[in-house]
């Protein structure tokens, strides 16, 4: 349990090819609901944007039904039963990782594939990543070594050619 909460999904921008296999894996693993936001960068690339599972989640504070909550392991989760799809969490999220949902009236929310993580595995999107761009790393590593996600960004072809 302790290991699970300390790890987060990190995207290496230099490696992502935008194949969206992560979105498909998320869709298959979450009852047909994709919890990943396909973000557009500079209008030319589609990259997945993941929930950060904030220490003080603004989405949970904004939820009028208490459907979003931080469990004892620190993962911010959503209750399917309580969520009414009001999109308050979408507006409150500072990273824009909770997309609007108009069909099922249940806001898509990354749950870090906790059942897999607790079994010692990695989230589905990380397992399926075709370019090894997504990794599931210790939080302190990601925070302590910012160059991990930004070291090669200057060489990113899409940003130079945008």
């Amino acid at each position: 349990m302790a290991d699970a909460v300390k790890r987060r999904i990190v995207l290496d921008l230099d490696r992502c090819i935008g194949c969206r296999a992560c979105g498909a894996a998320c869709h298959v693993g979450h009852h047909g609901q994709t919890n990943l936001v396909p973000g557009r960068i500079a209008g030319v690339a589609i990259l997945p944007i993941h929930c950060r599972h904030c220490e003080h989640p603004a989405c949970a504070a904004a939820c009028p039904r208490g459907a979003l909550y931080q469990d004892e392991s620190g993962v911010v989760r959503r209750s399917d039963l309580l969520c009414i799809g009001c999109r308050s969490c979408s507006l409150a999220c500072p990273f824009g990782v909770i997309p609007d949902e108009f069909v099922r009236h249940v806001s898509p929310k990354c749950d870090l594939c906790v059942e897999r993580v607790l079994a010692g595995d990695v989230p589905r999107c990380v397992a399926t990543c075709t370019a090894r761009a997504l990794s599931f790393v210790e939080l302190k590593t990601a925070a302590g070594e910012p160059e991990y996600v930004g070291g090669r960004i200057q060489s990113r072809a899409i940003l130079r050619r945008a």
Partner: peptide
């Protein structure tokens, strides 16, 4: 569906189509 890390060609990862096989 699970990911076969020992896969000789894909090394465990699956594309969107592979994820839909099920």
């Amino acid at each position: 569906l699970d990911y076969d890390a020992a896969g000789a060609v894909n090394g465990g990862s699956l594309c969107a189509k592979g994820n839909m096989v099920l």
